[in-house]
Design a protein around this nucleic acid. Structure first.
Lengths: 148, 148
DNA sequence: GCTTGACCTTCCCATGATGGGAAGCTTTAG
DNA sequence: CTAAAGCTTCCCATCATGGGAAGGTCAAGC
């Protein structure tokens, strides 16, 4: 099976399959004499595993760890569960941040007339936000969105 | 005021201030003979506006639009409100995606013994995820996290 | 006055995950 | 045999941010 078929069968684009190989997330498959990658059913299985993990919000590095756990037939389910729970915690933290934004914006929007007049508490809030008090530093900690 | 002071006063790093200038989000300030950027109180005000908008999840391009609305003294508050409501919708969509992930993972984790045995429904789910049925295409639509 | 250190300048690189596209070779169907 | 579809590698772009190098500038201390 060529990369195109593996892509269709796994739902992972050919581009991404090559990328995953280049970063060592998946193993390099055998090649034909002409250099074409040749995949087997097992490879597609792995690709689906990766896709599913990504769709659940795991980063590629986390997916790498999950693959290792998957392949380690003697892993303790407790390890996997702890991993999943930690990830849930991170997801919930992000949800919390987004909800805080929605709450603030919703509050502002509710107080905005929304008519033809120019007065708008939304812009006023943005303009009159308090000056930073702390260090002004704040090295942002964030994960990029992804999914499918 | 030099860029360092503007950064401290606004909470936006000097690096970002220069970047915002380079993409035309903020105006280029006057310079000293030696080439140092010189900022006034108004510039800090604008930077705080930008920072606040970013912290509410607006992208830089959206922030650009908000700045334009802010500077347009004759804008209709309805326009601003619509903008905010649309953004709230996008935030809620992302929250929904994250919640779906949490729900799925939570479900799996609850069914995992979490003991020393290797059997784990979490990994089983990842491994046995259904094959893609549709086109397998799916060009992801996503916004990066940011905030502070 | 001169040195030192803090601050400024520009420029390039990296991140994370993905897509776009070019240039060129291969395979397959007509 | 030819044309199209598919494969290969390589480079670029995204989005917002930080890191760091190389070099100029300013202010304070001696």
């Amino acid at each position: 099976m060529n990369i195109g078929q593996a892509a269709t069968a796994s739902g992972v684009s050919a581009k991404m399959i090559r990328y995953y190989e280049s970063i060592g997330l998946i193993e390099a498959p055998v090649r034909t004499e002409a250099g074409y990658r040749v995949y087997a059913g097992d490879d597609v299985h792995t690709l689906r595993f990766v896709k599913r993990a990504r769709s659940l919000g795991f980063s590629i590095e986390e997916t790498r760890e999950l693959l290792a756990l998957w392949r380690d037939k003697s892993r303790a389910s407790a390890d996997v569960k702890a991993f999943a729970l930690r990830h849930i915690g991170e997801l919930e933290a992000r949800i919390g941040e987004l909800q805080a934004m929605v709450k603030t914006l919703g509050h502002l929007a509710r107080h905005c007339h929304g008519d033809g007049r120019p007065d708008c508490p939304i812009l006023e809030d943005l303009a009159d936000a308090p000056a930073p008090q702390g260090a002004g530093r704040a090295h942002s900690r964030d994960r990029a969105r992804h999914h499918a």
